[in-house]
Design a protein around this nucleic acid. Structure first.
Lengths: 193, 193
DNA sequence: GAGCGCATGTAAAGGGTTACATGATTCT
DNA sequence: AGAATCATGTAACCCTTTACATGCGCTC
């Protein structure tokens, strides 16, 4: 479960309420680990019960800000240092690629164009954001620098996928003319499953 | 829900049992959309009830092979053509990067080295596999070509992440000596913040 | 006939999303 | 006063994982 450690990690920067955390999840972390507010609130309750965070203050609109405890900080650090990284990931764009052969060639071309545009746009937006960081507009705190590193990964992944969509569109492996020109020896199904 | 369409997509290649599908999920699709066998079996039951697939044959060890129906095929195609792609993805590697500032600098360096190695190895393995496809060892069916396109995305993403881990390791943004110094080398910007 | 791998399932628990609900404060 | 927004939560449902259970067929 990564949500737990995500919340602890964000609280390590300073006290925050469930509302703040939900906002930061949707802004910064949402693109690599989506989380909605009901999940965040209930996890915060559990974290408090476990003594990893505690209520720091209550504010205006019955706002409740949490602070990370020493145990909580130790727990994130333990996670970062000791727990193996789970390298499985979910990405629908890639998942769909396995089934491109089922698509109408024209639909596929349109699909690849729009995917290319999406990833190029996303990469450009992230690059713009990274440049403001590089200009020092967000300070040079250690958190800012960590975020800059995460941002770089986002940029590179989106650029890679934009390049991939472009390549797939150009190399035209699934084009209409290509249909049927392939050696017909490979028929549907494998040698008797 | 993508599992449903994943199963339909795989069955579009030809009849298969739950066991076959579980295996193919873990081999081919597992890296972009993990699925365990209990989920697959129960989804197959639901798909059959919905008339999107039907039992094609029963074999040796009470094996039950399913075949996609016309309705099922129409449903995958509808999904591919009409349903918007969900671009959110989950990736722990990237998620952790936001919290690198909490790590001991030496641990972080070791972490980045091992991540670099993992992604480089994965990319190399996928590249090797792609080359056998390019040599035509898997035939030139339209399915094979779609898989080749998916493979290319995997290669590019893993290469991008290997490059990123390398960059993060080299640029040394989180090094011990760097702690407390004003700004990352190279730029004059105001502290602002 | 013992043991292994094939093949299918059920049960329970956990994680995540969507819909619903409500009160408090600020702004106009 | 009314609208918008802040802020928190509950309930129901769905998706996903883990653990448990079982029987068949092949090989040694």
């Amino acid at each position: 479960m990564s949500l737990r450690h995500g919340l602890l990690g964000l609280l390590a920067e300073g006290p925050a309420s469930g509302y703040d955390l939900a906002r930061r999840f949707s802004e910064a972390l949402g693109s690599v680990w989506p989380a909605q507010h009901p999940q965040i609130y209930s996890e915060l309750t559990r974290l408090e019960a476990a003594g990893l965070i505690e209520v720091e203050s209550t504010g205006p609109r019955r706002r409740k800000a949490y602070r990370i405890t020493d145990e909580g900080l130790a727990e994130v650090r333990r996670w970062l240092a000791e727990v193996e990284v789970d390298h499985t990931f979910r990405m629908e764009t890639l998942f769909r690629a396995y089934f491109f052969w089922l698509m109408d060639p024209e639909d596929l071309k349109a699909h690849l164009r729009s995917e290319q545009a999406f990833f190029a746009d996303t990469a450009a937006a992230l690059r713009g954001y990274a440049e403001t960081k590089d200009r020092g507009e967000w300070g040079t705190s250690t958190q800012t620098r960590a975020m800059r590193i995460a941002l770089e990964a986002g940029i590179r992944i989106n650029e890679a996928l934009a390049g991939w969509a472009q390549w797939a569109h150009e190399t035209d492996l699934m084009s209409a003319e290509d249909f049927g020109t392939a050696k017909p020896e490979g028929d549907a199904g494998e040698p008797a499953g």
